[in-house]
Amino acid sequence: MIRLVGVAVAATVVFSGAALAAEGGKPPKIQDWSFQGLFGEFDNQELQRGYQVYQDVCAACHSLKYIAFRHLEGIGLNEEQIKALAATFQITDGPDEFGDSFERPGLPSDFFPSPFPNDEAARAANGGALPPDMSLIVPAFSPRWVPYEQRHHGADYVYSILTGYDEEPAADVELQAGLNYNPFFRGSQIGMPNPLFDDMVEYVDGTPATVSQMSRDVSAFLTWVSDPHATERKQLGFRVMIFLLFLTGIFYAVKRKVWADQH
């Protein structure tokens, strides 16, 4: 197979775009999340704090192109709040009757504006590395070197990477130019510099904004972003399962009754 596609360049790194040794990284720090498990649900306070971190910090480089302001209903904002929030953004629209684009205040139906006009501009501003869109980073971020049962721990990965900058590289690690040491990333070197520092964000609800707290909140928010219908899905799932259990019981009884004269 490797022969077939000539994957001699299998070490190409998807997210940073830089070629690194594909030696893997440390397994993630497994966290307790409110949304994990069969009965887990998102915590709207946490999601709203996470949105604040995304907006104040991450959004400088990372787009969230599948999320519109109206979607924020899913993290507990009401219609008025969403309208007011959207209006604080300037959206490029057009063309107008003269064929020019123009700026206007955002509407709930607008999708989050991207920090860069195109990928080339994004690379140019980030030393050649493309900051990936964050919409699906949580489910995509489950590299293969971790044990199978941790493969779907994307939120733990995001959290581990964000809190993983405080470790010093071992003496024999040679950092490539423009890359930063992070043992949780593939190859332990990442294009993104440490993005979070204590008290970088002033939380509306007064929670102390430690690096760990902000990392948790934004990881939870990005999990919601990747799977906004998760709570609805589980709730419908329980109703479906109860209905099916009931139906299974009925058909089992019917089947026994029908077969009673054949034994």
């Binding site: 299998a10 775009g17 489950s142 419908l236 399962m241």
Partner: peptide
Amino acid sequence: LVYAGFVFFAPNWFGEPENFVPADPLVTPL
């Protein structure tokens, strides 16, 4: 019951994380 269990509670269990990344002819997956 089994099918719905996966659809509602573990819908991506059979899937690969890599397929959440859009196709890029210039980047070969690991």
